[in-house]
Design a protein around this nucleic acid. Sequence first.
DNA 1: TTGTATTATCGTAAATTTACGATATACGAT
DNA 2: ATCGTATATCGTAAATTTACGATAATACAA
Lengths: 110, 110
Amino acid sequence: MPIAKTDAFGRADVALAAQFKALAHPARLAILRTLAERSTCICGDLVEVLPLAQATVSQHLRALKEAGLIQGETDGPRSCYCLNADTLRTMHKAVEALFGDVDCSCGCCG
Amino acid sequence: MPIAKTDAFGRADVALAAQFKALAHPARLAILRTLAERSTCICGDLVEVLPLAQATVSQHLRALKEAGLIQGETDGPRSCYCLNADTLRTMHKAVEALFGDVDCSCGCCG
DNA sequence: TTGTATTATCGTAAATTTACGATATACGAT
DNA sequence: ATCGTATATCGTAAATTTACGATAATACAA
């Protein structure tokens, strides 16, 4: 990416794109699903579930946290992550707005 | 990404992640919104709307097409792209399943 | 047939992502 | 105070993404 062009797009779209980017990896989807199933989770469990090294899982967790999809604190040797309901609801609405009533009637495409 | 680890994840998640990846850029979000507004579109219009070179827009269109989010044909000097309603509906359901009823009650996180 | 206009592709450079091992950090137990 | 465990961060290599200019390719018009 030569030269970040994000300035040229609206802030809302840049933010939304960043959130979608956080969903754009199967490991992170798996993390989110795991967090959704249990209402509490620690990183250690995830390392066992995912086919990835501990450092990589931690990195994915950070990505999710920076995107605001999860929240959590780590108290010494134990960390507690959980979903960020606010962000997820916001994303849900954004998807609704984008895909809500798709209906292509142009007839010119296959 | 040293060594693609996608084999280690379920096919469904790999596919879903790829679709989210297609949404993970403000230019592609803008393209989708533009396609949603008009029911028909050609690439030329997009080049004027987006702050990007023609080659880059074409590249983004290809990404969207490969992810199955849009469909279209290009007949010589004119191309017609439109949304792929099927894929968008599928994604909508996937989001529903992921975020449908988020409710963190673990009480351990801020 | 020769342009003309529009879109796709190629080649390439810079930036980012993904993955890991190694190391640091922080808490609880002994 | 030290050890053990669990998580985060650092450094780094390979792969991918993004962006562009230059170049092809395709259909229509003259």
